[in-house]
């Protein structure tokens, strides 16, 4: 099987497995799968993972769930109605002890205000998450952080430059 065809088809296999592919796309993918062992294996892999996950959850949920009850046993569960602010406070204190957070937040605000007063605002942090890079020749990816830009640098396969790039 032509691997190019497989690579073209692959992203649609998940949707095919879920019966979420329609029309011409579905016909193309189904036609390919009918003659491609590799893609049939991928579909089978997807099926196995799904089945194992369902089985694990099914068995896991056969446990005693009586702890989930109403009224809730949680001592901190509030009764409605809550105001918007009460709800916010509840959400925050649900997961963290508020006092260290409030103290930290106050310190942070003081620090930010102080820095803001004496210095110009820092450059915004550039964030780029590279998922995939394919290039004809050698390629260097220099991730950006702390205001640096992410760089993808392409080198000629036959003519390497004499400069030696260094990560920023």
């Amino acid at each position: 099987m032509n691997p190019r065809a497989c690579e073209t088809i692959e992203p649609a296999l998940s949707a095919l497995a879920d019966r979420e592919l329609f029309g011409a796309e579905r016909e193309t993918v189904v036609g390919h799968v009918a003659v491609c062992e590799t893609c049939r294996r991928t579909l089978e892999d997807y099926r196995l993972v799904g089945a194992a996950l369902r089985e694990g959850i099914q068995i896991g949920s056969e446990r005693d769930l009586s702890a989930i009850t109403w009224p809730p046993r949680l001592a901190h569960a509030p009764s409605p109605p809550l105001t918007r602010w009460q709800r916010l406070i509840y959400d925050v204190t649900r997961w963290v002890d508020p006092w260290p957070v409030l103290a930290g937040a106050a310190a942070l605000i003081a620090l930010v205000v102080g820095v803001w007063l004496v210095q110009p605002a820092p450059s915004p942090v550039n964030m780029v998450e590279i998922e995939r890079v394919d290039a004809e020749g050698p390629v260097m990816v220099i991730p950006g952080s702390g205001g640096k830009m992410t760089i993808i640098w392409l080198f000629d396969a036959d003519d390497q430059p004499d400069v030696t790039p260094t990560p920023i």
Binding site: A67, I68, T69, W70, P72, A77, P80, R94
Partner: peptide
Amino acid sequence: TQEAFVRAYQSL
């Protein structure tokens, strides 16, 4: 899950 029911009740 219990938390979700609390929120559901509040938003009912």
